[in-house]
Design a binder for these strands. Structure first.
Lengths: 252, 252
DNA sequence: CTTCTCATTGAACAGGTGTTTAGTATGTTG
DNA sequence: CAACATACTAAACACCTGTTCAATGAGAAG
């Protein structure tokens, strides 16, 4: 309720309007393909003014990075209640209101895809938060232990970010072209189902992977069937190290 | 064993060497940031020759797309045995030999990130394959049913592609800078653990998500604890539709 | 009022870009 | 041999890019 001028740059200062428009275009088209003139035209100013305020196009990018970083790390953006701080909660909230925050979500996707330092920082922050929450849950009993807690956090963070990086593909799956609320809603249940039960009914693939990597049963083997059946082992030879893992369900 | 000239453009025709170099640079730096002159210089020819062979830079890109598409859809690339056809198996195989196929993996990542039509085609193919395998496994008993099989396939395909899109972040997690075999190996176990057991010990979050979306228990409720404990419900109000799903583990 | 600051513009500039074009060499074909 | 197609180069061209610079206007400070 505090500041809701994200999408409507009505009375904001010209400098802020330039920055917001830059975020929008950088996120939509990419940094390299967005021209200073395009930003200036959309704001309704001259190209020179953009450089006057930000020094250079790279300076404008830095300003956008800083703004997004500050916005995503802002403590109580979500709702009125005393939500936990952290960037994850904010992105969470933005995904609930895609129409208002789509430019920011897209810009974050670009940050991660471009391999910038700001993207590294943001990703590391997400990972740290996820790892912390999972560690608490593990001590709590609500989260399963992992053979590699850090890599699990990295993996799940990357998975969640795929919604931003593959917006187009997720949208196409439900007949949309953008990351709308409908798309987010359709993504939710399969993701939570996966996080709750997994997809495989047996741990055959898990055992095979453990064997291929030469690790013992580090993970606790709770409710696991053991009959070998559907999913054939990973290939035949033992040369390759870890096939069948990274790909979604093609390991069989 | 058949054609292994991927990384070593020794005696290949000049046209092929230009294409391979373009794939490498497009994948590494992006299409827009890669200049025709940079490609020509690296191959050791004049910039004019690049255009002579491919008409334009966009024509070169199309040639690269076609080549990669054909290469990834090639039937028996994996090993000698009669592996199932399909693009997924090839990428699978490439991830096992990252040093040789890194340019192709990166190029595919760019295809998906750039939102090109070729990327759409490739992604759709991956999804179709994943969905088919899971349908077989579901009939088989080795794969759990899903409330939305198609969206599950889309989601898991996107998840697996995140390794290509976030190569940098995955590599940083193990102290590397590229997608090496070591990185792929480190990714494998957490991914398979997730696919086998999930991360949560209870289905509290699943039930909460189902309630928030207004769906009944479409998924079969197999081995599920029911005690409510660690993961607090999704926020307080009932306005937002599907919070707590897309983000990796921040729903709690 | 005067002076100063600063937002803003319009035009120009230097560099890099994809692309074209004329020309050269090298085979290949008749 | 001549004629021709093709691989290839060097140079230029037109365009777009980020950027600069002098000038203008308005408002604040004195």
């Amino acid at each position: 309720m505090l500041n809701m001028r994200s999408v409507l740059p009505e009375d904001a200062t010209t400098r802020a309007r330039i920055r917001d428009t830059a975020i929008e275009l950088f996120g939509r088209d990419g940094f390299r393909e967005t021209t200073v003139r395009a930003i200036a035209t959309r704001v309704g100013v001259s190209p020179g003014l953009v450089l006057h305020h930000f020094g250079s196009k790279d300076g404008l990018r830095e300003a956008c990075d800083d703004y997004i970083l500050a916005e995503v790390e802002k403590p109580g953006e979500t709702i009125g209640n005393g939500e936990k701080p952290g960037a994850s909660a904010n992105i969470q909230s933005w995904l609930g209101r895609t129409d208002e925050h789509r430019p920011w979500l897209r810009y974050i996707g670009r940050m991660l895809a471009d391999g910038s330092q700001a993207g590294d920082h943001l990703f590391a922050e997400f990972v740290a938060y996820t790892e912390r929450v999972f560690a608490e849950g593990e001590a709590n009993g609500s989260v399963r232990p992992s053979s590699d807690p850090h890599m699990r956090a990295v993996t799940l963070t990357a998975y969640s970010m795929s919604a931003l990086l593959l917006e187009r593909q997720f949208a196409r799956a439900v007949g949309a072209t953008e990351l709308t609320n409908e798309v987010v809603a359709a993504m939710a249940l399969p993701a939570v189902e996966l996080m709750t039960h997994g997809v495989y009914t047996t741990d055959d693939l898990l055992r095979a992977t453990q064997d291929a990597l030469g690790v013992g049963g580090a993970d606790d083997g709770t409710s696991g069937a053991s009959r070998a059946n559907g999913a054939g082992g990973t290939g035949g030879d033992g040369g390759a190290s870890s096939d069948g893992a990274a790909e979604g369900g093609a390991g069989a």
